[in-house]
Amino acid sequence: MGEVRNTSGREAVRVEVTGSEVGFATTKFDALLGWARKWSLFQYPFVTACCGMEFMSLNGPRFDGLARFGAEAPRFSPRQADLLWVVGTISQKQAPALKRIYEQMCDPKYVVAFGTCASSGGFYDNYATTPGIDKIIPVDVYIPGCPPRPEAVIDALNLLQDKIARGDRTPGVVKPREDIVERQLVTLRKSATDLDYGPQRRSGEPPITLGRTSDPKEGER
């Protein structure tokens, strides 16, 4: 007997085996569909700017952030893709191309805004840049960061998979992970008798023993 739960904790698919020959599964059709979809995302990387460098790293050997979650194969025809990564700044001149690519994709389609520029225009608040791609196309997940670290992108992919499984199309934002080192530093600083605002990490600092990392997926999304 086994069961598949989606990350929101609700039971989605239940597989029961009651004899060596007999097997059946009960689930809601939508849940099964969502479960299947979330592990087979075909991505179209719309890479324009600096965030593309992090996107390369994400695909690189250290992070391997897409293949592990079933979204490895890039499809360079929008008609074969269902996940659009918008990586980098979208200028006013580029906006029609983005819109056109989005419209060519088949439903259901998901859009991830990778980086601050794609999410809101970032610090390019001027005549040339669109203030976020949500002015052009709807967005499912926003990833803040300039550029976001690969870890944040992995979180975003997990968040998107959650949403797909739940059938939830409201936009979501990736939350920052809790920085354990920073928290311990703050505690250390508080307990220190004289406050030293100097660069803490730079000069012979006391060794910091790290606590167990709490699960980043815990807590509300």
Binding site: T48, G88, S91, Q94, Y124, N126, A128
Partner: peptide
Amino acid sequence: GYLHRGFEKM
């Protein structure tokens, strides 16, 4: 010019 972001103006 598809990535013109107005560097010089900014």
